[in-house]
Amino acid sequence: MIPWNLLDLDHALRASWAADTCSPDDQPEWQPSNPAWGHCDITALIVHDVLGGDLMRGEVHVDGDQRGFHWWNRLSSGVELDLTREQFQRGQRVTAACVVERPPGPLRRWDEYLLLRRRVIEHLGHLPEPAI
């Protein structure tokens, strides 16, 4: 196995995001110019697979109205790592951050998660088994 670093993981995820792995709720607004859009949940889960730590979730607000949730990671060191934060380009605010338990078993977006994992593995060569 060839060693890789966090930058390699970041590049592999970014190269793997596409319309077919975007959340169905966000797919109508997904564009190649904003590839992180709709990928926060499954990206955070893959980072969790690799680095462990906590899963974080916050509420996304636009003009005072909640428009969904945003997911990211808090590593065991306490550092928060958000590889999809740049998706918010229209004044969205993320509030009410909290730690959430990893959903047990197959996820709501299991097929998209597995597809994104396969693409990341194509770039990196290996990932730890999912923490399900």
Rank of each mutant, 00 (worst) to 15 (best):
M1F: 04
I2R: 08
N5L: 05
L6S: 09
L6F: 11
L7Q: 11
D8N: 15
D10N: 06
D10K: 07
H11M: 07
A15N: 12
S16F: 01
S16P: 04
W17V: 00
D20N: 12
D20T: 08
S23Y: 05
P24E: 11
P24Y: 08
D25F: 06
D26K: 08
Q27W: 07
W30Q: 15
P32Q: 09
S33H: 08
A36Q: 13
W37A: 05
G38F: 07
H39R: 12
D41L: 01
D41I: 00
I42T: 10
T43S: 13
A44V: 04
V47F: 02
H48R: 03
H48Y: 10
V50C: 09
V50Y: 02
L51E: 00
G53R: 02
D54R: 01
M56S: 01
G58F: 09
E59A: 13
V62K: 15
D63P: 00
D65I: 08
F69R: 07
F69H: 15
H70F: 11
W71R: 05
W72Q: 02
R74W: 04
R74I: 05
R74T: 10
L75K: 03
L75A: 09
S76D: 13
S77H: 05
G78W: 15
G78H: 13
G78I: 12
V79R: 15
V79W: 12
E80Q: 14
L81N: 04
L81K: 03
L83R: 06
L83I: 03
Q87K: 06
F88K: 04
R90E: 15
G91Y: 12
G91K: 05
V94W: 06
A96Q: 13
C98L: 09
C98D: 14
E101P: 01
P103H: 03
G105T: 07
L107D: 04
L107C: 04
R109W: 13
D111S: 14
D111I: 02
Y113R: 05
L115F: 00
L116K: 06
R118N: 10
R118S: 11
R118H: 13
V120A: 02
V120T: 05
V120R: 01
E122I: 01
E122P: 01
G125L: 09
L127C: 13
L127D: 15
E129Q: 11
P130A: 10
P130I: 02
I132C: 14
